[in-house]
Amino acid sequence: MAGCSPNRFQELVEEHQADLYRLAYSYMKNRDDALDVVQESILKGLSKLPTLRNEQSMRVWMTRIVVNESISRLRRRRPDFSYQEWDGPAEPEQNRDELVDLRRSLDLLDPKLRTVVVLRFFEDMKLEDIAHVVRAPLSTVKSRLYRALAQLRVDLEQKEDL
């Protein structure tokens, strides 16, 4: 079956609502804004539904809409907004400092670089799919990932882990 009907789209979105919310929350860092992003993304998705070629690409496609919506909202956000208002979850005593550093560095990363890290490591997306999400060549995605990891001072033992 070609395309995706609005009803089927709704089913798929409801099925993946937790993923969409988590992704939005990773940018917005608060509940209300993340919910707004999810809602706005649904409206955008519905209006662009005729351009969705098949169901299989729905995840990539919807991820793209959520990422774009989140980033454009971050840009519009008051300049005095600070992630320092957000403490993050508690963690075991050991490793606390390193983890806090890493979390903070991740939050301060340029959204374009952070997107690649989040999608690759937290959403387990393939690099090819990420390239579709951010509409950039695969080589650009790889280079963003390396730059991001360098800034985060994360040394993966094996680059193949990417």
Partner: peptide
């Protein structure tokens, strides 16, 4: 801790 382990921990938080 290796970078990978740290990222994994952030992944779990996420």
């Amino acid at each position: 801790q290796s970078g990978k382990q740290q990222l994994d921990q952030l992944r779990q938080e996420y």
